[in-house]
Structure formats: C-alpha cells, structure tokens
Design a protein around this nucleic acid. Structure first.
Lengths: 146, 146
DNA sequence: TTCCTTGCAAACGATTTGCATTGGA
DNA sequence: TCCAATGCAAATCGTTTGCAAGGAA
C-alpha cells in the first residue's frame, strides 16, 4: 500500500503509534495532498473514489488528527476544514475569504517569514510567553467573491 | 439605559443604523466588556442575569455582529466565541496557550503593527485577494504552564 | 396601533456514536 | 483467529427559525 513517498511518511508515523494505515486512510491522505487548501469533510467526500460515507470520513479524519497527520481549521459557517499537517506540507499561512469561507494557502518567502518572526520575537519578549508556533491569517475577499 | 460610556458608544452606533439598543442587548455588551477573552454563547449565557434563552442570545449576538459591535472568533473546537469589536476594544492579537487554552490579548506598537502590514501587503500583492483584516495568533505556553 | 424584540419549541446541518459486519495482520 | 475498521442509521451538539406574546415608539 505504501507506494508514494507521502504514504511512506504517514505509514511510518501511524505504525509508530500502533495505528493501521488502511486503504481508506491512504485515500483521504492522498486526496488532501492533491488539493490546494483545507477542505471540509463534505468537499473531501466528493473528491474520494469510491464513495465514502461521511461518518467513516469523519472517523478517518479524527484518527489522522489525533496522530498529527492532519490539522483542522474552524471558520465561519460552522464547517471544519482539514489539511495535511505542516511537517508533511510545509509551513504556510492562509488567505481566508470572509464571504464564501474558502481558504487558500500561501507560503511566505524566507525574508517575509523572517520578518514575521522578528515581530513575534518582539512581542513575546515583552509578554512572559514561550512561543512554539504562529498563525497569520489574512481575511478578505477571494477573486470569485470580490 | 445608556449609562456607561460603552453603552453610549454602542447605543449611538445602533441608533445610526435604526436598530434599538434594548436592555437585553446592553446586558450582552456589558457582559462581554467585563470578560477577559472571547466567549461562547453558552459561556455568556451563564454569565448574564437574569437567565436568557440561548436562542435570544444568538439573535442578539447576530444583531451585534451585523452592526459591527461584536466580532466572532472561530479558534477551536467549532464553537463560535464572541468579543467586542476592535473599534471598542482596540486592535490586538492573541497569545494562545496550547496547554490551558487561555487567550491573552496583546496590542502591538505602531512600528510592530506597520511591519505586519508591510508583510501582508507583500503577500497580497501576489495573490488575487482583497485583504480587509488580519489575525496574528501566537501559540505557545503561558507563564503558568511553562 | 405598528413594528421590533423576545421566548418557547421545533427544525436544521454538521458531526458523533451504537451496533452489526467486514477485513487485514 | 481476533481485533480494528467500516457502513448504516440514529443520536447529539451548536445554531437557526416559525410563530405567538410582550414592549417600545
């Protein structure tokens, strides 16, 4: 089953946690990999062949989330969207559409990312806070909605 | 009714939109003002006396959101949390503790905030995206949990 | 009076769970 | 074999809505 490089990484991770990497789970992972941004369970279902019941999909996503393979994002309209975790996908930020809720990934250049880090270090230096990660989300209207 | 300064600001805003500033709405606003961070509807309900049905609370929050008095926040676990809008509370960012979940507000200095804006303008220039707002959240461990 | 607002209960959509069946190590 | 994973249907949770009663202009 572990054919692609991605499958191999995820398979190893799950194996180390004594969790099976089944066909269904692999299908969810490779669907997420082939998509641009975080996807809701319903969107994901329409993307997976053969058809998967939503309940199974949610269960799969829960397992993948607990094992650190996918990351959930909660936005307006009450739907959760899922994407591959950063150790698989790389560090990135989001453009969030305030109208349709779509999320687009953006990767920052090294200099942009280091400018973000500079600001964060400034902030954290004042507060007594041990930063481990950061989220920069830009809200606005996507091409379709503007 | 418009006794406090906050009430006066909100009352004016609503009046300019031909929306009544009722006792129930005022209670929600002052509850939000007296609380540290964004609160869910259920948390808010337990804080308001006399008891308010959740449905009324949601309706009140919807009105206040549409009129720009409160801002919803969809950080975690799919429940919406609400806080006073930035024109009442000031623009700020969040330090989110990954252990205890506490959210601390931080205000950036003018130069820090302008550095954030510079980066955002850089990013948005490339994407076809009309930015209206941004959220910078720093995740890590708060003083208590580290 | 005439709208707007509220409370109650029922409806709703997203997500979860119980249980019987299937499938992989 | 044996336990974990799946499919289906029903339950649950947060949130929304229809409708009748209460209140302010």
């Amino acid at each position: 089953m572990a054919t692609t490089n991605l499958d191999r990484q995820v398979g190893q991770r799950l194996a180390s946690l004594d969790i099976r990497y089944t066909t269904g789970r692999s299908r969810v992972v490779s669907s997420l990999a082939s998509l641009d941004g975080p996807m809701s369970a319903a969107e994901l279902r329409d993307f997976i062949a053969p058809p998967v019941p939503l309940s199974s999909l949610y269960r799969t996503l829960a397992v993948l989330e607990e094992s650190g393979v996918v990351t959930p994002h909660y936005g307006k309209s009450g739907v959760a969207r899922y994407e591959l975790a950063e150790w698989l996908k790389g560090h990135h930020h989001h453009l969030v559409c305030i109208d349709c809720g779509a999320i687009e990934d953006v990767s920052l250049s090294t200099s942009q990312e280091s400018r973000v880090h500079d600001v964060i270090n400034d902030i954290v230096a004042l507060a007594e806070f041990q930063a481990t990660d950061h989220t920069l989300e830009i809200e606005g209207r996507c091409k379709k909605c503007s």
